[in-house]
C-alpha cells in the first residue's frame, strides 16, 4: 500500500524536490565519449535506480556525482551545489552529507568491523567514545552484524562485508546514499537481505538513494523511479509500470534480457567470414 502511494507520488515527478540533478552532462575518457549530453533528476527521499549494460560507465556516473571525476561540460547539482565548480574544502563539506557503498565494500582491512563503522564518526565529530560506541552498535544492529563487530574484514563473507560497509556508509546519517552494484556476486539470501535493507533504510531515514545496478528484477522491486542508460545516453526512464509498457525496443531488450536487439551481442568487428579467410 505504501509502495503504491509512493509510486503515485513519483509519477508527477515535477512536484518533487530534486536532491541530485544532472544537467546536460558530457563526459569523456581520452577520445572515448562515455556520456553525451545526459540529464537526470533524483528526487529527495526516493530510491532512484540507474540501470544499463555492464561497461557503459554507471559507476562513473556515481563518481561524477561524488566529485571524484569532473565532467567535460554540464552541471551536477547536489542539494543545490554545483559539484564541478566547488573548491576542495566546499566539496568535502558536501561529501559529508553523502555516502557511497562501493562494489567491493572497500572496508579498511587493518581495522575491525566495529572500528570501520566508527571511523567516519571519529573523523567528523568530537563525540566521546561511549556515544560513538552506541552509535556504531546501533548501525551494526540495523544491518544484523552487531555480533560480528570484532571480526576483521577478511573474516567476513562477501554479503557480510557489503552489509558492514553499508553500516559504515550510514554511520553519520547521510542525506544521500549511492549504491554501486549492490547485488553483484551475492547469493539469493544476502541479495534479499540487501534489497530489504535498502528499502528499509530509505523509509526509516528518509534517504535519497541512487542504486546503480543491472539486476533488473531486484531493482524493480525497490526503485521508485528508474533510468536506463545505454549508448552514452538515457534510453528510457519512468516508474516500473511505465518502463514495462515502454515501446522502445532498447528498453524492452534490456528489461527482458534478450541477447540480441538494438544493443548488439557482438562487439564491433568485420564479418566472421572475412575474418576467417584472412588467416
Amino acid at each position: 500500500m505504501t509502495f503504491q502511494s509512493q509510486n503515485n507520488a513519483v509519477q508527477n515527478e515535477n512536484g518533487l524536490t530534486p536532491h541530485v540533478e544532472l544537467k546536460n552532462v558530457t563526459f569523456s575518457r581520452g577520445d572515448r565519449i562515455i556520456y553525451d549530453d545526459i540529464s537526470m533528476s533524483f528526487p529527495k527521499g526516493k530510491v532512484t535506480a540507474i540501470m544499463g549494460p555492464s561497461g557503459i560507465g554507471k559507476t562513473t556516473l556515481l563518481r561524477l556525482i561524488g566529485g571524484q571525476l569532473y565532467p567535460d561540460s554540464g552541471e551536477i547539482l547536489v542539494a543545490g551545489n554545483n559539484i564541478p565548480s566547488l573548491n576542495r574544502a566546499q566539496l568535502y563539506k558536501v561529501r559529508e552529507k553523502m555516502s557511497m557503498l562501493f562494489q567491493s565494500g572497500a572496508l579498511f582491512t587493518e581495522m575491525s568491523v566495529f572500528d570501520n563503522v566508527a571511523f567516519p564518526i571519529r573523523e567528523h565529530t568530537k563525540l566521546p567514545e561511549d556515544i560513538i560506541r552506541t552509535m556504531a552498535l546501533l548501525k551494526l544492529e540495523s544491518v544484523g552484524l552487531r555480533g560480528a563487530r570484532d571480526l576483521m574484514p577478511n573474516e567476513l563473507s562477501g554479503g557480510m562485508a557489503r552489509r558492514a560497509a553499508l553500516a559504515r556508509a550510514i554511520a553519520l546519517d547521510p542525506e544521500l546514499i549511492m549504491y554501486d552494484e549492490p547485488f553483484v556476486g551475492q547469493d539469493p539470501i544476502s541479495m534479499g537481505v540487501l534489497v530489504r535493507l535498502i528499502r528499509d533504510l530509505n523509509h526509516s531515514l528518509n534517504l535519497t538513494s541512487i542504486v546503480v545496478s543491472h539486476d533488473v528484477h531486484e531493482v524493480m522491486s525497490i526503485a521508485d523511479y528508474m533510468y536506463i542508460i545505454a549508448d552514452k545516453r538515457v534510453i528510457g526512464h519512468g516508474t516500473k509500470e511505465q518502463l514495462l509498457q515502454s515501446e522502445s525496443p532498447l528498453v524492452q531488450q534490456f528489461l527482458k534480457g534478450q541477447a540480441d536487439g538494438p544493443v548488439p551481442f557482438h562487439f564491433a568487428a568485420d564479418s566472421l567470414q572475412q575474418d576467417l579467410m584472412q588467416g
Binding site: 568535502y92 561529501r95 572497500a106 571511523f119 573523523e123 567528523h124
Partner: peptide
Amino acid sequence: ATEQLSSLEMMAVD
C-alpha cells in the same frame, strides 16, 4: 585497488 582510497575521499577524509 580495493577502493579504500576512493571510499576515504567519499567519506570526506583526504
